[in-house]
Design a binder for these strands. Sequence first.
RNA 1: GGCCCGUUCGUCUAGUGGUUAGGACUCCAGGUUUUCAUCCUGGCAACAGGAGUUCGAUUCUCCUACGGGCUACCA
Length: 465
Amino acid sequence: MKPRVRFAPSPTGQLHLGGARTALSNYLFTKNQGGKFLVRIEDTDLKRSKKEYTDQICQSLDWLGLKWDEELVYQSSNTSVYKSYIDALLKSNKAYMCFASKKELDEIRKKSNSFHYPGIWRNRDLGEIKSEIKKGSPFTVRLKTPKNGKTSFKDLIYGNISVDNNEIDDFIISRSDGSPVYNFTNVIDDNSMKITHVIRGEDHVSNTPKQILIYNALGFEVPTFAHLPMILGEDKKRLSKRHGAAGVNEYESMGYQPDALLNYLALLGWNPGTAEEIFDLDSLVKNFDISKVQKKSATYDQKKFNWISSQHLMKEDSDIVLKRLASINPEWGESKRQDYLIKLIDLMKPRSNSLTDLIDKSQYFFSSPKEFDSTQLQKIWKKDTVEKIIELKSVLDSINSWVAIELESNFKRFTDQRGIGIGKVMQPMRFIICGSLQGPSLFDLMELIGKEESLKRINFAINEF
RNA sequence: GGCCCGUUCGUCUAGUGGUUAGGACUCCAGGUUUUCAUCCUGGCAACAGGAGUUCGAUUCUCCUACGGGCUACCA
């Protein structure tokens, strides 16, 4: 049977790295076997859930290229379904009403020094319950959990996990306002969506036995579980907003490409068993094996991610890079023609680790350098530099075919004739053109910006330096 | 407090009852390049600790420490 999996975010914030990794793992697992990937919005917490977050999460999934196969499921539109299952459980005596107030329970907890619900309404007689109902007292619904035995499951990543049933108290499945809780809605929806594999974060391991008890009470078939280790920030704490850019949309605006993020996320806690490290989404799908996922949590490392990102950028077609640049910064490159921009990208993409990095490093393709570092200038601008540059300028002036090879041969001839090292003029010339001492081949650069602009910058330098 | 889970270079990881414990990123040193980046070569750097099993444990078992998760009328 082909798997059906779901990613089930709660719309209480933007899609963050941990969520993206969970979504990705689900996607890879199911697509590797030709299965379906679904998305369910867990918006039962009415106070914290926001439509804008739902939109943002979907937008981020879309950007990442993780397409879901069926319509979005909203838990908020299933309330009557949940209610009917609660009623059924009540009727079959597998759950019961609890009229204890929160305050009352807190006091008991304090006294008994136990965190477990003491079961005070588990076996009340019918009359007592009826009279509370008549009074209209608020109540919660609790699952009548077994007192003996163990609840076990085989996790695809963690292996066998087993908990004594007496560790699980009669937990609430429906609040006093009638709304069902997460553990309950999760089970109902996973069942009705015919989910075969529940793949989620490790923080849900302890919820799983409780959910299995619900599956059992309802007579549902229990799916297979897989729990992914957590992603930690560089301070070893669970990744969160405090760690800077935790939101996927922020990675987008920082100029990272979706495949790069996906690639890095996949490698956090997983490896294909080979030395290969650079993958696009398709090759991740082909290679993914959930049994190779690590049990321990992994720490996010910006440097490694930058490396992955630069590898992707280097390999990416320049016209795709151009499209991405336009999407994060529509004004960029407006003054130039497309073929100019493509050549610029050809030159700069191997030297950048993100799109914004590329933008930042490419100022001098559009306008003369505005600032010249004076210490660098001193280093390369010697007393006799000006006259050399003036001479060279006249050589360049006479070039008709302004292409890199021509420029190079003219430079060479010039320095050979004068018996000087080529660096003597290359360095100052680069500085004149770029305002810095690093960058792509000077000849390519000069070819691209053109004769007129090159000479303009040279003239400026002759007068100013 | 209780329960569950985890622990190999700084980070991501490979690995096996006997290995010089391998790779990648970072960092450092060379080489290539007019410069930068790329690329190439080399280097630094790890089996949490303690018992036990064994001829031999990083690998198996137990304990301790440390880290994480859950223990909500959050998800």
